[in-house]
Amino acid sequence: MSIQELAGQRALVTGATSGIGRAIARSLAASGAEVVVTGRRAELGAETVALIEGDGGRATFVPADLGELDDLERLTDEAGDIAILVNNAGFYPMVPTVALTAAEYQRMYDVNLRSAYFLTAALAPKMGAGSTIINISSTGARLGMEVASGYSGTKGALESMTRAWAVEFGSLGVRSNAICAGLIRTDKLLETFPEEAMQQVSASWPVARPGTPEDIAEVALFLASPRSSYITGTVIVADGGLSIL
C-alpha cells in the first residue's frame, strides 16, 4: 500500500491515546492522513502525537471524555472536516451481570455506543463521497462471555448500527464497516489478563497467538483506503479464528 494513499484526508480516531486506537492512528498517519487524536488523558494523547510526528506524520490532540455530551459536541466542532471516522473508544468492566453497577452500565453505554452514534450523526452527513466510518467491535458481540454481557451488548448494537449507517449514508458516498477484534494484547488488558494466560488460551486457535493492536490497525487501514471501495455494511472478523471454533 502506498505510504501516501490517504494523503489529503483527515481522520478522527477516538480512544487513540493507547492500545488499538493508538495503533490505528499511527497507521493512518503513516499512510498520509492527518489524524485527530482524542481521549481523556492529555499526557497519553501527547505521546500518540509525538509517535506520529516521529514517524513523519501529522496529528493533533483534542482532549475529550466521550461519555460526556458536551465533550462530544466540542470534539465535533474542533475536529473539522473528517473523511475517516474511527469509533474505537471503549469502557469495559469485565464482571458478571449481577456485579455490574448501574453507574458502570450507564458509562459503558455512553462511551461505547452513544459516543459513536452522535459523532456519526454530526460528522457523516458532511463527510462526502469516498469517506468511511470504521467501528471497532469485539468477539463479545458474537460469543457468549460470562463476564461481559453488558459490554457484549454494546458491541452487538454497534455492529447493527454499522449496517444501518451503510444504508443511510451510502447515497452520500460514505461507507460504514466494523472490525470485530478478538483477544488483543494491549497494556490495559494485561492488567487483568496476564501474558501467560493469553498464550495458553490462544494456543489452540487456528492462529495460535493473541492479536496485537497492529493487527487491527492493518484492517482499519484497508477499510480506510480506496482498496476497500466496494465494501460497506460489513463486519470483518480479526480474531485469529477464535469465533469459528
Rank of each mutant, 00 (worst) to 15 (best):
P93K: 04
S202T: 15
V201Y: 14
V98S: 04
N88I: 11
V35L: 15
K126H: 14
G211E: 06
I134P: 02
I136L: 14
T186H: 02
L190C: 01
R114W: 09
E159L: 05
A208Q: 15
S152T: 01
Q9L: 14
P96L: 06
I134L: 03
A42N: 01
T232Y: 10
G150M: 06
A23E: 06
K188I: 02
R227G: 11
L100P: 08
P194K: 12
R163N: 05
L28N: 07
A124N: 04
E68C: 09
I3L: 14
S131Q: 09
T120V: 13
A220H: 06
F118I: 03
T154P: 10
K155Q: 01
A203T: 04
S31Q: 14
P125F: 07
E159W: 05
G8K: 13
A33Y: 09
S160L: 10
M1P: 11
G182N: 04
G240K: 03
F61N: 04
A124M: 02
G170F: 08
S229G: 08
I136T: 05
A178P: 10
L183E: 02
G19N: 11
E5L: 14
A164R: 12
A25Q: 11
T48C: 10
I52L: 05
A83Q: 12
L69Y: 09
G80S: 07
L72T: 01
L172E: 14
E195G: 05
D215H: 03
L242A: 09
L51S: 04
A64Y: 11
D239K: 08
L51P: 01
V167Y: 07
T48K: 03
T48Y: 12
R227S: 09
G39T: 05
K155G: 01
A102N: 11
A25D: 11
V13G: 00
I3D: 05
E68P: 00
E78W: 02
A42P: 00
